[in-house]
Design a protein around this nucleic acid. Structure first.
Lengths: 289, 289
DNA sequence: TCCAAATATACTCAATTTGAGTATTAGGGG
DNA sequence: CCCCTAATACTCAAATTGAGTATATTTGGA
């Protein structure tokens, strides 16, 4: 889930100008987010700095603005009331990234759209075709969860996403299925999702999103939510155990709908034991269980 | 190799203030580097943005400066004459990172130094000990090539590297073995090296450093130089072949000192074929061949 | 001329890791 | 007590990896 401010006409990420009172960039970030969302941030990671002079939020003015994007992970308790900010499913903005219930329907539209885009380009057609095939796994039955930014950029270039349209251009084919964000925030969101999908494979950041104790299935569902794919349950457990990422609390969770599950917690010591502890996942399209 | 300007009293990386004439950050970077080193940059990648108000290059002044660090890869032809910039071995500044000829000697000094640092800390001793053990592989015989930044930060925290010393503090134990850089440039160098060591494993960036055609051993030596470790020759070749990273030119290189070697070139198509082509290396301490 | 040294390249093989199952266990609700 | 559901335990073949041995081509002397 991503926390957005429902601005007009589209949602935006929390943001604000760096002020002299902020001793570090991170302090500035935390202050703004806290003010705009009533939320205290734990884990925070710098993503990327944008500074083009033609950046879309700088119409006319002579100066230059630098935007430094951050990724933060929080255990979302409840939507933060006062501020008006609210939690939104990330896949609202990037619907083609969620394969948990099979191939997302929007990919039909995208594939059709991209075919036209490939045709429209004469001799660079083969290049476009291959890029699209790689990013979206067309022709093959493979899907790379980490190529989030590549896919977004391809769709931007192809004019599929709405923010890629200039005023006056014909209305996009996709008005009904596409859900943009303000400024370049959807691009930032894509960057963040891609980074995170990569990172959970070698750092235990996933536990920033888990409560103190949880079941292995809870953990698996969270990972699946981030990666946008389904995992093989037995192998996922084997992975978590061999990596030493969790330890038993001794308690059981009985509201499982079946046999009660052991409750476990994150083993923090793992950070001091191995150089890159994480969930080296390997997807499955549709596991039988 | 890293390109430095031999400033007084220590070397610094090429750098310069962003100007209004620079349309993008990258354009500004390229302009400054070109001016300061007579070098045209190809591959460029943003590393990190620093913005603490107490950053060491801002003594006194009220304003804030943001520094955006980049990593660029170039095929170094010759040292760029006019500008005074020159190429330096990266391991001049980070000598503990080079294991190509076995465990670097400086690690003896470091290990001794860290032991004192661990002892000096009372009840947080165990934590320090484990951190040091993990970062430097103490006690085990394993070494993680990617932990470059962790190691630098640990040495900084422990006061081993000279830039960590405040004026007036007792002269460092390490004056004879340590080779600092200006400002926080050694930290940036550590960030870059760590990032690069990680990246060659899943992106074919190594070829930015290779000439048009080269032998497999040339390629292996370059990878070893970056990773700071030796690789098993036969397995390295198998990896390169199975990943489809190169293709034959049909030519032979005869000045090998032995049997002539095939000359190969980078297969650019690989970028359009597989999602993350790279050299998933697995080190060896000291291969028998 | 022929051999030793040096490097390239080909092949082998056991140990591990991975992908994909089947089998069994333990609650909750009729 | 039976059935549904999910948890947990085990199995097994395929693929990957780590570490060799074996063979091929050069060059430079003895």
């Amino acid at each position: 889930m991503v926390l957005v401010r429902p601005d007009v006409p589209v949602d935006t990420l929390p943001a604000g100008p760096l002020q002299s009172g902020h001793r570090t960039l991170e302090a500035g970030l935390r202050a703004w987010v806290e003010q705009q969302t009533d939320l205290h941030l734990g884990y925070v990671e710098q993503l990327y700095t944008f500074g083009d002079t033609d950046r879309i939020d700088m119409p006319g003015r002579g100066g230059r603005s630098l935007s430094i994007a951050y990724l933060a992970l929080v255990r979302a308790l409840r939507a933060s009331a006062r501020s008006g900010a609210r939690w939104q499913n990330v896949y609202t903005y990037l619907p083609w990234e969620d394969w948990r219930d099979g191939r997302p329907a929007v990919l039909e539209t995208i594939e059709t759209y991209l075919k036209t885009w490939v045709k429209d380009s004469g001799d660079t057609g083969t290049l476009r075709e291959k890029r699209a095939a790689l990013a979206f796994g067309l022709g093959t039955d493979s899907w790379s969860d980490e190529l989030v930014l590549d896919r977004y950029e391809l769709l931007y270039e192809a004019g599929f996403v709405r923010e890629a349209r200039r005023d006056g251009e014909s209305p996009p084919l996709t008005a009904m299925v596409d859900h943009p964000m303000g400024l370049d925030h959807r691009r930032i969101l894509a960057t963040a999702l891609g980074r995170l999908r990569g990172k959970i494979k070698y750092r235990p950041v996933i536990f920033e999103l888990m409560p103190e104790s949880f079941t292995l299935l809870d953990l698996q569902r969270t990972v699946e939510g981030l990666s946008g794919i389904r995992l093989h349950k037995q192998n996922f457990r084997r992975l978590v155990e061999t990596q030493g990422l969790v330890e038993e609390t001794g308690e059981l969770q009985t509201e499982t709908g079946g046999r009660p599950a052991r409750l476990v917690r994150f083993r923090r010591e793992v950070l001091l034991e191995r150089p890159s502890p994480g969930l080296r996942l390997s997807s499955t399209k549709r596991p039988a269980n």
